[in-house]
Design a protein around this nucleic acid. Structure first.
Lengths: 349, 349
DNA sequence: TTGTACGCGTTATCAG
DNA sequence: CTGATAACGCGTACAA
């Protein structure tokens, strides 16, 4: 932790002015080769590395974008950050992850920090829309005065910022249709919130889809729950134990793969064999999906691509002063064996 | 993106000097109440937020620590970052995640960036020790001139920095003894590298343990592999298909839980039933362990606690100028059902 | 091709 | 209690 050399030290020792050092650092062509080499030698000798604070202060930008996400174990977030980091790097920026707690208001302190740090942009992603998350519009509005804002989430609320989101209708339609095509008629949905103020509207869309197919939308087939495996376990237990066996659904769609994981465990514990007694579909196409037993059919929302777009649009917005708009990414059904599709099962009743 | 107000603007508009504005901002007591209120009003009116670049430049510190880790999907890293972020925040710092590629040299550019950004410290974690990762000692050495460095990894190489690590001997001993106590005699290990230059020495320690127990350390029971589920699948296939059925191991220890995931799939695909035909133990106690079939017995290395210590020691080292030392965290065996322990199985052969 | 001098936005030190 | 003013380290006009 010795005293770091400054540009003055380098200039003095090389017998030039600081301006020349800057030029050498920037690879500016108009420096005599002899001078350049002399300066470079001194730079190397001290392993001189210019201060970003000073540079940022002078330039008025930090070449850094912030990613704000709930601090959860869900690998989905890891994927988003990875993608953001890579894409930012490819564009000459750095990405910085800031974490918020689930279902809590956006901390005023965090917003202040993003502004203090003079981030060149900020991406909000993940379950930022929970109804308990008060103050989000205000936070984004405040931030927008200082930097472009992009969200990766359902465009439920009018936020006057760029919004990248999945095709959530397809996200419900795909699995429902898949089960329907395989002959399933009693289909259940577990997870997330079925209440109307769930901004992802997964529950609503699910019901919509059932009606479009003339399937029963029995309220007993919809269980509100959390987002983790344990919630999946509990949701299945609650649903099935409250239902006469003859009215059991033959297929379950889970809010995400973690919930499906819990559901599978609970179903097996109840003596069902999968997929013959019960089909199940998750969402997110997590790394463990091929390794559940049976391998889990799921929906891929392509978070990496959405994130990549988010970073690009963010950086573009810096220059273009573009207004608010939204971009939708299609979803894909990844068929494995948890619905029997690959095994040739076909429900008939 | 309007022009941001500076401390000059606030001072001028409030009719005071910048020094007074600073004092108000810092909550300094020696400001007349009337003045304070007047200044505060102007601050609020502009939503004035001081620039971190300027503050950092002046103070000579950033109140930020860096975490450098491989960019992998392994949830282990998420847990480390979460823990680091929280602990840093609790200490009045921010944490910033920088990603490196697996099995590649530490990029010179990254080291430069950490120095440029004047990080107040840096933590290296994860699989940073792979033998292909050249230049690590040099990178750390260079960084050490500018900031304290802590690594969370095996203390294999003399690095002259603080090193937090797991009890890797126990990490091999625990699962081997567990299987041994359950009657297993032919025990295999898959994953990581069995070569001597694997700094985690998991392979070596495994062999050591077998010998201590007078168990056969047949080379066929040791399969080098990667670190993901697919590697686990392949490793099992390779091992068993090369072995006469009578010589098959009765228990497998995997380098981590992801590999165990793959191993379980492969074993089932070969028609074995678990845990009666084969016991299996993972490592890391990931969120999915209770949800494999059967639930996976594993080793918990307590990464959150190690990370917490890492952050604390890092911050302490800033003040104390403390020399290099290392801290070891004990490991714990988490017994579930993948070895039959809870089901009362007991191998006798 | 190179050097001088100022501004970037803060905090800290000293006077007053 | 408050105000000048000097750093902090770097880029960049502008001048030479």
């Amino acid at each position: 932790m010795e005293k770091r050399a400054t540009i003055y030290d380098i200039a003095r020792e090389a017998g030039v002015s600081t301006a020349t050092v800057t030029r050498v650092l920037a690879g500016h062509p108009s420096v005599k080769t002899a001078t350049r080499e002399k300066v470079q030698r001194v730079i190397d000798a001290h392993a001189y590395t210019p201060s970003a604070s000073a540079r940022d202060l002078e330039r008025g930008q930090t070449k850094t974008i912030a990613i704000v996400m709930p601090a959860v174990i869900n690998p989905y977030f890891t994927r988003v950050y990875n993608a953001a980091y890579r894409e930012a790097e490819a564009c000459g920026y750095y990405a910085w992850l800031f974490q918020i707690e689930e279902h809590k208001p956006i901390p005023r302190e965090l917003v202040d920090e993003l502004i203090r740090r003079r981030m060149d942009g900020v991406i909000f992603a993940g379950g930022i829309w929970s109804t308990q998350r008060t103050g989000l519009p205000e936070a984004l509005e405040r931030l927008r005065h200082y930097m472009p804002v992009v969200t990766i989430c359902p465009p439920a609320v009018d936020l006057d910022c760029i919004c990248i989101h999945s095709d959530l209708v397809a996200c419900s339609r795909l699995p429902v249709r898949h089960l329907h095509a395989l002959g399933h008629r009693r289909i259940a949905f577990i997870g997330g919130s079925m209440r109307l103020n769930d901004p992802s509207k997964r529950g609503e869309n699910f019901l919509e889809e059932l009606r479009a197919l003339d399937l029963p939308d029995d309220p007993a087939y919809h269980v509100d729950a959390g987002f983790d495996a344990e919630s999946g376990e509990r949701a299945v237990l609650r649903m099935l134990s409250g239902l006469d066996r003859r009215r059991w659904p033959t297929g379950i769609i889970a809010f995400n793969d973690q919930m499906a994981l819990g559901a599978i465990k609970q179903l097996k514990q109840m003596g069902l064999s999968l997929p013959s007694d019960m089909a199940i579909i998750g969402c997110d196409n997590q790394f463990f999906c091929p390794y559940t037993d049976p391998p889990l059919t799921t929906v891929d929302l392509h978070p990496e691509e959405m994130t990549q777009s988010a970073v690009r649009e963010l950086l573009l917005a810096r220059d273009n002063q573009a207004g608010a708009f939204s971009l939708m990414r299609e979803a894909s059904l990844i068929v494995r064996e948890s619905c029997g599709a690959k095994l040739g099962y076909r429900k008939l009743g």
